[in-house]
Design a protein around this nucleic acid. Structure first.
Length: 271
DNA sequence: ACGAAGCCCTGCAAGC
DNA sequence: TGCTTGCAGGGCTTCG
């Protein structure tokens, strides 16, 4: 499923195809995503020039002359640049037809994704307005986490998956970062020491950066914008490895449920 | 204000 | 083999 690294990889892959391009037409085959796609999306986007692309958490932002297209890939969404002649298949919900006979095609089997319109300043949009810091930026740090965690009794794993605390850390990388920082996922957020938070912030940055460098994790249905899979999945230490031996100590990895999310960890290494 | 649960949806795997 | 059932998952929304 697309996590932050996949969104970043997708954006980087799309930039050369989209920057400066003028949108010709938008075809919506299935408007029922996480939220219904605005019915007048075509009227809003047609003949507008794409000025730049950016990312906020897992939200991909396509900046236009008179507004912003917000895209979220949910857990099974993908974007690809295809030739206009290529026949659409099942779950190809939206085509954004570009000027040079190319199409930006949105596919999302589970339809947990979203495609919405915001103004010129997308950060005023309700979905983006209250997001926490970007994990890769310098304002996200152990100091910041320790401060925000004051009197918070929620499990640390849920805490770092809360988009108001930090945006874009999903289930896979939360588990990986906690393993790397040697922190038990059920620890109450308020009980982590400063040095643990320093290690955790560092670990989050490291796992995300590593995945971005690798080109994004490939799981079930993610394909990056070139149609090539990423290769990070083989590096995962705990996610999807319940019952298998810990790569560090050899103990059998445990699987528990935290906040309705499966969580794999090493009881030996993580305290 | 905080934390837990609910919800949207399809593909896949396991069980019968 | 084919059907049924259960589960996974992002993250906003609702409930307590």
């Amino acid at each position: 499923m697309p996590e932050l690294p996949e969104v970043e990889t997708t954006m980087q892959g799309l930039i050369p195809h989209l920057s400066g391009t003028i949108i010709q037409e938008v075809i919506i085959r299935q408007p029922q995503l996480r939220w219904t796609i605005p019915p007048n999306l075509n009227e809003l986007l047609a003949l507008q020039k794409i000025t730049k692309l950016s990312r906020r958490g897992k939200y991909l932002l396509i900046h236009l002359e008179h507004g912003t297209l917000i895209i979220h890939l949910g857990m099974s969404g993908s974007l690809q640049i295809v030739q206009a002649s290529k026949t659409s298949t099942r779950h190809d919900h939206v085509d954004i037809i570009l000027s040079d006979n190319k199409v930006l095609r949105y596919n999302d089997p589970r339809r947990f994704g979203a495609m919405l319109i915001a103004g010129i300043d997308p950060f005023q949009h309700p979905l983006l307005k209250h997001l926490g810091p970007e994990p890769m930026e310098t304002d996200f740090s152990g100091d910041y986490l320790k401060k925000v965690a004051h009197k918070r009794r929620v499990a640390i794993k849920s805490f770092i998956m809360n988009s108001k605390v930090v945006t874009g850390v999903g289930n896979i990388y939360a588990a990986e970062a906690l393993f790397l920082a040697k922190i038990h996922p059920l620890t109450e957020a308020q009980n982590l020491s400063q040095s643990q938070y320093d290690a955790l912030a560092q670990a989050i940055k490291q796992v995300l950066q590593s995945a971005i460098t690798q080109g994004g994790t490939t799981l079930r249905d993610f394909v990056n914008s070139d149609g090539k899979p990423g290769y990070f999945s083989q590096k995962l230490q705990v996610y999807g490895r319940a019952g298998l031996p810990c790569n560090s100590c050899g103990a059998v990895l445990h699987s528990i449920v935290i906040g309705q999310r499966s969580t794999v960890f090493c009881a030996q290494c993580q305290h």
